[in-house]
């Protein structure tokens, strides 16, 4: 790669990072506002997360006496950095993945665990019983939702691969060929089930009610984050925002990859911001159903209930979806029609 190419790439990464931070906080603000309205409250203004971060950055950064300072300080940095990095591998609006040639959906799946692992490390390094319990729960939750998540990723990619496309795990391919266009009626049902599973994994990834056992305000007083304050907490908060954007981007990229410029002809200078806005709108809708509506409408589960829900119920639904997708791919060959 030429030096100019690297410079352009870096520039894109910086621009995307800022977009990730601002977009993430915006999504958190909208989430809070919608949740408040559903609870018959007015709620904070949409810019509240920005105010919160600005305030946290001014606050004292307290390190508990029996914490391990190195890991304690490193964890929020890793969490924030790794969540931003995931976005470089995802298509945002009509912007194709910046680092798309270096990684695919499987990498994204692995990268998604890094912020969670950083939080676990930070929790264990806090030296507080609440944080330790929270860290244990976070690990259990991760193990619980990893399997349904893998089913979704493999199922979709396998079906796209079965449709005869090369490199089915690449997000560029998935974005270019929406899953709904390559499958028949059976496959549509299967893909819908997988969408449900992915939507159910989202609250756990974002540690939101009903799967927020690792933070559980009324149980563990914030769990993993109980000892964090000031700049470190601000970074975790930003990471939470970016993760929200990333999860929305994953769902959008896999299931709703359409762009506005694909439907309406428009000049390139207009297409980019229009697609970005369209992307944010899609992300908002996805998050409303996957996170906001769910988190206000349910009670928190116990950690053992979380595990059984993911391992038994959601895995079953996921496997059923996968079977339907396989049947959908195999059916034309069996019946002897189709391509």
């Amino acid at each position: 790669m030429t030096p100019a190419g690297i410079a352009v790439l870096l520039l894109w990464c910086v621009v995307l990072s800022f977009f990730a931070l601002a977009g993430g906080l915006f999504l958190l603000g909208v989430d809070r506002k919608l949740a408040a309205h559903m609870q018959a409250r007015i709620g904070p203004p949409i810019r509240q997360p920005f105010i919160d971060v600005a305030k946290l950055l001014q606050k004292e950064n307290v390190v508990p006496g029996n914490a391990i300072p190195g890991i304690f300080h490193l964890a929020p940095v890793i969490a924030l950095a790794s969540s931003i990095v995931i976005l470089f591998y995802l298509p945002v609006g009509s912007i194709l993945p910046v680092l798309g040639m270096y990684g695919d959906l499987v990498l994204v799946m692995y990268l998604l665990t890094v912020p969670a692992l950083a939080m676990v490390a930070g929790g264990f390094a806090s030296g507080s019983p609440y944080a330790t319990v929270g860290a244990q729960r976070e690990m259990v939750t991760m193990i619980a939702y990893e399997f349904p998540l893998a089913i979704v990723v493999i199922g979709i990619a396998w079906r796209i691969g079965a449709a005869g496309l090369s490199s089915p795990f690449a997000l560029a391919t998935i974005a270019a060929t929406p899953i709904w266009t390559v499958v028949g009626p059976l496959g549509l049902t299967g893909a819908f089930l997988l969408l449900l599973v992915l939507a159910a994994v989202t609250p756990a990834e974002l540690s939101r009610i009903p799967f927020d056992t690792q933070e559980a305000e009324t149980e563990l007083a914030g769990g993993l984050l109980v000892e964090y304050s000031g700049r470190n907490l601000a970074m975790f908060y930003l990471a939470q925002g970016v993760k929200t954007l990333v999860l929305a981007a994953v769902i959008v990229a896999i299931f709703f990859p359409w762009n506005l410029s694909g439907f309406i002809a428009m000049p390139p200078w207009l297409a980019l911001p229009a697609d970005l806005l369209f992307f944010l709108a899609k992300a908002l809708i996805v998050l409303f159903f996957a996170v906001t509506l769910v988190r206000v409408g349910m009670a928190r589960f116990r950690i053992n209930q979380v595990v059984s829900i993911y391992w038994i119920y959601l895995s079953m639904i996921g496997l059923l979806g996968l079977l339907l997708l396989m049947a959908d791919a195999a059916l034309p060959a069996l019946v002897g029609v189709g391509p």
């Binding site: 919608l34 559903m38 018959a40 007015i42 904070p44 509506l293 409408g297």
Partner: peptide, 24 residues
């Protein structure tokens, strides 16, 4: 989950909060 319809309905209604002294 009997609360879901109630929540969606509330989304399109006025909040119950009195905006004293100001909205924000």
């Amino acid at each position: 989950l009997p609360l879901f319809p109630e929540l969606v309905r509330q989304l399109f209604r006025e909040p119950a909060t009195n905006r004293f002294p100001a909205k924000y």
